[in-house]
Amino acid sequence: MTHRKFEDWDAYAQRVCAATNAGNLDWPQLPHAKRIMIDEGGKPFFTGKACKRGHVSPRNEHGDCTQCHLMRLAERRDAV
C-alpha cells in the first residue's frame, strides 16, 4: 500500500462515523476519492456521503453506490 495524502481530521471523522453507523469499520481504510482509487489500482472508494437513494456504502470505479448496483442486479435477475 502506498501512502496517500491525508484528507483532514474532520473529513476522516465524518467517514468513520458514517461507516460505524452503517456497521462496517473497514470502509474508512478505503481511498476517499475516485482519483486516489484509480492511482492505487481500482478498488472501491468510500466518501462517507449518502447516494441519491440514501445508501451510505463504498462506490465503484464508475462512482455508483455498491448497494444501488446490487439492487439493479437483483431487479435484472428477477425480471428474467
Rank of each mutant, 00 (worst) to 15 (best):
V56N: 05
L70W: 04
A13W: 02
R72K: 13
V16T: 10
A33Y: 00
C51F: 02
R35T: 10
D10E: 15
D64R: 13
G41R: 06
N24T: 07
P28I: 11
H55Y: 10
G41C: 07
F46R: 06
D26L: 14
T66K: 07
F46D: 07
D39K: 14
G41N: 08
R35C: 06
H55F: 07
V56P: 01
M71W: 08
E61G: 09
F46V: 05
R35I: 03
L25E: 12
G23Y: 09
D8A: 03
A50H: 02
N24G: 05
C17F: 11
R77T: 06
W9V: 06
H55A: 04
A11E: 14
D78F: 01
F6P: 00
E75C: 06
G48R: 03
W9S: 08
R15N: 10
R76L: 12
C65H: 09
W27G: 04
V56H: 01
G48I: 02
D8Q: 02
A19H: 05
K49A: 12
H55N: 10
E75D: 13
R15Y: 10
A33Q: 12
M71T: 07
T2W: 05
A74M: 11
L30A: 02
A11W: 01
G41H: 08
L30Q: 03
G23H: 07
H3F: 05
R77I: 08
E61C: 05
K52Y: 02
M71A: 12
W27I: 05
Q29K: 13
C68D: 14
G63K: 09
E40W: 00
T47C: 12
V56S: 04
R53A: 09
A18T: 06
C51E: 00
Q67E: 15
K43M: 13
H69R: 13
F6D: 03
P31W: 06
A19P: 03
D10C: 02
H3C: 02
A74W: 00
A50G: 02
R59H: 03
M37S: 15
E61M: 15
T20I: 04
N60L: 08
V16N: 04
H32E: 07
G42Y: 06
R77F: 11
G48T: 02
K5G: 05
H69G: 09
R15I: 11
M37Y: 02
D26S: 14
P58T: 01
P58A: 01
